[in-house]
């Protein structure tokens, strides 16, 4: 694997757009992921995640814009793909080939594989490689692609919903592999629906809505930018706290009892804390939003 300088982003997209007929699948998408980062790519079904990834891989031609893999244009697949390994959302294998034959083929054509690590991965993902692909379940086909991708040790891993067919045990193994990859300095671009998985593995996320990138931020920043749930228990009822609702960043003020109030807070907590200072506060709980709540904020509906 060619060494790359830290100043060169592992992947970079500039003004990427893709239309299918009259549908705009991806619009003016610009994003850079530095090497070594584990990046979560979020969005509901049909937001354009897979389309973006397929453009990144040169499988689709963007209508406008360009993508680079370690500064190699994505259209130059022969060079660009030396730096990456890919796991598609829906893994299709030749039904008559065995899992091992698929892995041999991918290793033989690919940019180089660590066979010892591959055998270890087969063991860890509990995959029987001597079965023909037609007997594999969705999860097992996904395991083949995952084993092949992790075993390459490519500096960039592009994973498109790689765990949709995996059971919780295998999912844990997957997260361990991501952590190992991150420790080795590999970059991971992970598109996922599983917010808990992204929360556990990613340091930065991008949120896609209707083909547009609506947010790119570190997970910690994202939490700070978004509403925190504040629960206040009072020693005695305090009528003056009604004006909390008028403070900047406060929304959804609820009194579950005369001595317990809940509110959602966006932005710095200073004004609220000052207002609470006059009251007799028995207990204060500030809960940061989960990624799922952030996600719901963006879409105002159940996460996809």
């Amino acid at each position: 694997m060619s060494a790359t300088s830290p100043s060169v982003p592992a992947l970079r997209m500039e003004g990427l757009s893709k239309r299918f007929g009259t549908t705009e699948a991806v619009a003016d998408l610009s994003l850079a992921v530095p090497p070594g980062e584990v990046f979560g790519f979020l969005g509901p079904n049909g937001a354009g995640k897979s389309t973006t990834i397929r453009m990144l891989l040169g499988l689709l031609r963007p209508n406008t814009g360009t993508a680079w893999i370690f500064d190699v244009p994505a259209s130059d697949v022969q060079r660009a793909h030396r730096h990456l390994a890919y796991v598609p959302a829906d893994v299709a294998l030749w039904p008559s080939l065995t899992g091992r034959e698929c892995l041999d083929l991918l290793a033989g054509v690919g940019p180089g594989t660590d066979p010892a690590y591959r055998d270890e991965l087969l063991e860890r993902f509990a995959l029987d490689p001597d079965r023909r692909a037609r007997t594999y379940s969705t999860g097992n086909r996904q395991k083949v692609a995952l084993v092949a991708a992790f075993a390459t040790r490519a500096p960039l891993l592009v994973l498109d919903e790689p765990t949709s067919g995996l059971d919780p045990l295998m999912e844990r193994e997957f997260r361990a592999c991501i952590a190992e990859a991150a420790r080795r300095g590999q970059t991971v671009f992970l598109s996922s629906h599983q917010l808990a998985e992204v929360e556990a593995t990613c340091s930065r996320v991008g949120i896609l809505r209707s083909g547009r990138l609506v947010e790119v931020a570190g997970l910690a920043d994202l939490r700070r930018l978004h509403r925190a749930e504040v629960v206040v228990d009072l020693a005695a009822p305090a009528t003056g706290l009604q004006r909390l609702a008028d403070l900047p960043g406060v929304a959804d003020l609820r009194w579950s009892s005369p001595v317990r109030l809940e509110l959602s807070l966006t932005g710095p907590p200073g004004p609220v804390l000052r207002a609470l200072g006059d009251a007799d506060v028995a207990r204060l709980e500030v809960r940061e939003p989960s990624l799922e709540e952030i996600f719901l904020d963006y879409y105002g509906q159940a996460p996809a």
């Binding site: 891989l57 040169g58 499988l59 697949v77 022969q78 060079r79 660009a80 793909h81 030396r82 990456l84 390994a85 890919y86 598609p88 829906d90 893994v91 299709a92 294998l93 030749w94 083929l105 991918l106 054509v109 690919g110 940019p111 692609a145 092949a148 592009v158």
Partner: peptide
């Protein structure tokens, strides 16, 4: 059927 997707994600030019 999507069987070429994995192949074309490798350093394989389609013309090749």
């Amino acid at each position: 059927a999507g069987r070429l997707t994995l192949l074309f994600a490798l350093p394989v030019h389609r013309a090749r």
